[in-house]
Simulated assay, not measured.
Amino acid sequence: LMYNGVLTTEVTASADVFTKATEDGKQLFNVITITETTDPIITEEGLTMVGDYSFKNAPKLDVLFVPSAYDMYSQVHNENIVAFIRERDKETQYTVSNCAGAQLIGESGIADGKKIVTWIGGGEQLQKDYPKLLVQDEYEVTYMEDGKYISSNGNLASYITALELVEKMTSPEHRKFVESYLYLDRLQDWKKGE
């Protein structure tokens, strides 16, 4: 899902992980982007992006990634976005939120009674706004899974939700291959040349 003000990383992290082919070159997933209309959107970082599909013509989804923006007010108050999430959740195997995307999950009501985590500093307000969610301590929890609902603190932690889910949908071996392709080990334990 994409909309104006979306954090680019939270769109590209899932795409980065799920578009990687297997070691023998087999493409496992069809990764698409969806926007409310066919109009281009502008990300938080100023990139202009055009969705592959709009709400009207998007195909059936196995997974829906719900990203965030720094200012979620217009998204949470956009009934079209909230209704799209609510409707598509009926068909997904997994619905994933990163960062403040948890607010859209809360507004849609789809994960009432489920554990969820949000951006660091946003948990208390999320719990006040959506008391039916079981909001986890975002200072202690980076990634949360409760049934088909997966969530993270967002930004680069969006790679965690994508990697955990790609492993669930494929195998630990494929996840390791994707991680090696992304040089994840180097990001975690990098050394500066002298």
Rank of each mutant, 00 (worst) to 15 (best):
N4T: 05
L7N: 03
A15V: 13
D16T: 12
K20S: 07
K20W: 09
E23F: 15
T33W: 04
I34L: 06
T37F: 02
E44R: 02
E44D: 13
E45T: 10
G46C: 11
G46H: 08
V50D: 01
G51Y: 00
S54N: 01
N57T: 04
A58P: 07
A58W: 03
K60V: 12
L61Q: 11
D62P: 10
V66M: 06
P67H: 04
A69Y: 00
M72C: 03
Y73D: 15
N80T: 10
I81R: 07
A83C: 02
A83Q: 06
F84K: 07
F84A: 06
F84R: 07
R86Q: 03
E87P: 00
T92H: 05
S97R: 01
S97E: 02
C99Q: 01
A100L: 04
G101K: 01
I105G: 01
E107L: 06
G109Q: 08
D112N: 12
V117K: 07
G123M: 00
E124F: 08
Q125T: 05
Q125S: 04
Q125K: 02
D129F: 06
Y130Q: 03
L134F: 09
V135K: 05
Y139E: 03
E140K: 12
T142A: 08
M144G: 08
D146Q: 13
D146Y: 12
K148Y: 10
E164D: 09
P172Y: 02
E173G: 11
H174I: 11
E179F: 15
E179G: 14
S180P: 08
L184G: 14
W190D: 11
K192N: 10
E194N: 09
